[in-house]
């Protein structure tokens, strides 16, 4: 299965989804006016990844900023992951910068909705 590799821009995140290693990463900032367009291919990719996925899947989310247009899309990504969580054992590593309470709370909100283990990882600097 082909990986997804997207370079970050001032408005959209860097994405690396690699089926070979079972590592899915979204990093940077996500503040596009319309996030649906950006995230749809990611959600579709996860759907296909479910068949023949590695035993373990690590999902690294390391965002500086995201807007509310992205909030629902990120939830869609997590819901899709939840739907394949029987086929592969998933952990979502939610990174936030030291003292960034807003980003920690955002991660906890997803954790409350999504039935996948979350790890909250505090970083000194992103």
């Amino acid at each position: 299965m082909d990986p997804i590799k997207i370079e970050g821009t001032p408005k959209t995140p860097t994405v690396n989804f690699d089926a070979e290693s079972g590592l899915l990463e979204i990093k940077g900032r996500s503040i596009p006016e319309n996030a649906v367009e950006f995230y749809k291919p990611l959600v579709d990719w996860i759907g296909s990844y479910g068949d023949g996925a590695k035993d373990n899947t690590q999902v690294n989310i390391q965002l500086e900023y995201f807007n509310t247009s992205s909030s629902k899309c990120i939830l869609d990504v997590f819901k899709k992951l939840e739907s394949i969580n029987g086929k592969t054992s998933i952990t979502i590593n939610w990174h936030y910068e030291e003292d960034d309470e807003d980003m920690l709370e955002a991660g906890e909100d997803y954790q409350a909705i999504i039935n996948i283990p979350f790890k909250m990882i505090e970083m000194e600097e992103m």
């Binding site: 996030a35 649906v36 509310t68 247009s69 629902k72 939830l75 909705i113």
Partner: peptide, 20 residues
């Protein structure tokens, strides 16, 4: 309220669905 609107499955044209 944020979590409720986040998870209500409704999207506005631009995707935010009233979270802003």
């Amino acid at each position: 309220y944020y979590k409720e609107v986040l998870d209500n499955g409704q999207y506005s044209v631009h995707g935010g669905g009233g979270l802003g």
